[in-house]
Design a protein around this nucleic acid. Structure first.
Length: 394
DNA sequence: TCTGGGGTCCTAGGACCC
DNA sequence: TCTGGGGTCCTAGGACCC
């Protein structure tokens, strides 16, 4: 095995993260099936994380809580303390950054570490991964699983190869061999729908995909998915490291315990969601011209409507009025509403906006006032500056 | 007692412009 | 008096991921 070149990435996954944090903080939970996401009796909660003990009962992420409860009635159900998990995550990410100047956090529980050019200083990729595992364990009591490859995509899959507390090294040049040894289900980026289509096309293994031409795959699965599949099974697929963030979106949504029927309740919820999204826009100092709402009916049918305006939205009242209008245009009458969502798309940083392009004075004033209120609330959470209408529901 | 919440990317069609 | 081609922006829905 040659370590020369040192051209590797590590992908690190925190094992059953939320459940592991709870088990660490409360030793009486160790070795027990812990299920984060909701309590038995919740009508519409789902499992966020199941500890490895709970997984033995068939419990897994995204499963409705009532189903998890029926599979594992002795499970310990916890709603979850997400701020605490985020804090722990931050601590672990800081550990990662001690091993490379280039760390990209992908979510609350995973990150890539770029080891290119660090070998002289830090040692081989495998050595670094072992050090990091030890370091995290010592500092936080948690275990992580690592995948190492010169391809980020392969590293990502490798980290899930052995879990928990695993380490999988795919040497340079062995990426394709590794991919061909994998069952289809491990192909990251192909979900249930694509898996089904693959099987319907007689493609049951990564080897069988490998035997097909890119043009055939593109004909069946479309250009994008076709070339993705072609490259993925060769270990060619790669993501680009350190891309600057492009346009993004901010959204908030809520599933109601019982379907909403009444327009007043619906408007109240739209207002609440508008405030939430507006707060985040202030927080990130950005604004957006495109507003979107999402409606999920009682039969789970989900629709959305969006509108792009010449002038960006910049305060919660404005956003709320726009959402109400979109709702009126889209919603079918007399249907139970299971979920409502409010979002802004293609948000831009405020600095980027051309001066004078923008707002009427009244809206600008409202935006500034709102920012002050949000900031006050931020400093003193007990001080709830909210519309009287929203207060009623708390 | 079916199916959370926060995102990204892709597709396909339409409008509009040159 | 039957209809091209490219580019950009916008919209709605869907697949996928953690």
């Amino acid at each position: 095995m040659s370590f020369s070149g040192g051209n590797y990435f590590i992908h690190i996954d925190l094992d059953a993260f939320f459940a592991s944090v709870e088990q660490r903080d409360n030793p009486s939970l160790k070795g027990k099936p812990v299920i984060i996401g909701g309590l038995p009796g919740d009508r519409r909660s789902v499992v966020s994380t199941a500890s490895y003990e709970a997984r033995k009962y068939g419990v897994h992420s995204a499963m409705p809580i009532f189903k998890a409860y029926s599979l594992c009635p002795n499970g310990i159900f916890i709603r979850g303390n997400y701020a605490h998990y985020a804090e722990t995550s931050k601590q672990i990410m800081q550990i990662f950054s001690m091993y490379s100047p280039n760390v990209i956090q992908m979510s609350i529980d995973e990150a890539f570490i770029d080891l290119r050019g660090t070998e002289k200083l830090m040692g081989s990729a495998v050595e670094v991964a072992e050090k990091i595992k030890e370091h995290v364990k010592k500092e936080t009591g948690l275990t992580v699983s690592c995948g190492i490859s010169s391809s980020m995509y392969v590293a990502k899959i490798a980290s899930g190869f052995k879990k928990p507390d695993g380490l999988t090294f795919v040497p340079d040049g062995k990426e394709e061999e590794f991919m061909l040894s994998l069952p289809l289900e491990k192909l990251w980026g192909a979900g249930t729908k694509t898996l089904e289509r693959l099987k319907n096309s007689g493609l049951n293994t990564t080897k069988e995909i490998h035997s097909k031409s890119i043009s055939l795959l593109s004909t069946i699965f479309g250009n994008s998915m076709g070339s993705f599949l072609y490259n993925a099974v060769r270990g060619n697929k790669d993501m680009v490291f350190g891309e600057e963030a492009k346009s993004h979106s901010i959204s908030a949504e809520r599933t109601f315990e019982f379907d909403l029927m009444d327009r007043y309740a619906i408007d109240t919820s739209l207002m609440e969601l508008s405030f939430h999204v507006s707060w985040r826009m202030h927080h990130e100092n950005c604004r957006s011209r495109t507003v979107c709402i999402k409606i999920r009916y009682d039969d789970f049918k989900t629709v959305s409507i969006q509108e792009t305006f010449d002038v960006p939205v910049n305060n919660a009242d404005d956003l709320y009025e726009k959402c109400k209008n979109l709702y009126s245009r889209k919603a079918e009458q007399n249907r139970g509403i299971r979920l409502l969502g409010v979002g802004v798309l293609n948000v831009e940083s405020r600095e980027n906006l051309v001066q004078g392009q923008m707002f009427n004075e009244k809206n600008e004033k409202k935006s500034k006032l709102e920012k002050v209120l949000f900031d006050m609330e931020n400093k003193n959470p007990a001080l709830k500056v909210r519309k009287a209408r929203l207060l009623k529901n708390e």
